[in-house]
Amino acid sequence: MKFCAFVILLSFFSLSTFSKSITLSRGEDAVLQNFSELILQKAYQKIGIELKVIHVPIARSLVLANNGIIDGDVSRISKIENQYGNLIKIPVPINHIDIRMFTYNKKLLEKKNNINGFYRMGCVRGLILVEKISTTMKVDCYKVNGHKEGINMLNKNRIDVLLLPLTIGAYFKSVDSKFSTSHYSESLGREPLFHYLHKKHHKLVPKLTLILQQMNIDIYEKTYRDSLKETLSPDGN
């Protein structure tokens, strides 16, 4: 009887030992990350790891990942590892970010490259590409903690323009009746997004790299992007 109990206990311990999970973070209203998360769910499943994702403010996500409180960040632009030294980039792009300027004043879009300090610009805290673009434009941004907060400020005329990823703008245009009438600019900057892991999981990097290289991500992405086309008209309305 004792031997049987030992075997059962050993079996349970073995299952627990090989049952692995990874917890990642992403922006709490960053629907852009839905596609990245979809790709990673498939990738981690292929290597037998359960993927859990928590939603937090965008800037906080990087801090949690870098400090090792969670295991990594779903996806970010390249070179953030220069600032967040504990993060390792999986060197296969899994998504992309395309920043646009959203506004209710279409005339402002004609001056996107020389917009002056008179106009009030909103930026979401933690979006590194947005910070780079606003610096290039030499315009101080009013920082907000999330996309929804920024859109609310634009709707209430507290800012004149808002820098957003196109995918996120498309989503809010489909669910916010006022914001659906906003206009958006041509691309101000477009970069691929990469998955980042804390360095304590460095042994997973080769496995994930190989799996992601073998996945036909472009086909997944085309299907996903096509679903957004009805939301966005070609003239930026």
Rank of each mutant, 00 (worst) to 15 (best):
S78I: 04
S78W: 00
K79A: 08
K79P: 01
K79W: 00
I80V: 15
E81D: 14
E81S: 12
Q83E: 15
G85V: 11
N86Y: 08
K89N: 11
K89Q: 15
I90D: 13
I90N: 10
I90W: 09
I90L: 11
I90F: 08
P91L: 05
V92G: 09
P93D: 05
H96T: 07
D98I: 04
D98H: 10
I99E: 02
R100N: 02
R100S: 01
R100K: 14
F102T: 06
Y104D: 01
N105P: 06
K107C: 01
K107F: 02
K107V: 03
K107Q: 09
L109V: 05
E110I: 04
I115D: 07
I115H: 06
N116T: 14
N116A: 07
G117A: 13
Y119V: 14
R120G: 05
R120A: 07
G122F: 04
C123T: 07
R125N: 15
R125E: 15
R125H: 14
I128N: 09
I128Y: 13
I128P: 00
I128K: 12
V130K: 01
E131M: 05
E131D: 15
E131V: 02
K132S: 06
K132H: 05
K132I: 09
K132E: 09
I133F: 09
S134Y: 07
T135Y: 08
M137E: 04
M137Y: 09
K138Y: 09
K138M: 11
C141F: 04
K143A: 15
K143I: 13
V144K: 01
N145T: 12
N145Q: 12
G146I: 00
G146D: 14
G146S: 15
H147F: 12
K148C: 00
K148P: 00
K148G: 05
K148N: 08
K148L: 09
E149P: 00
E149R: 00
I151G: 05
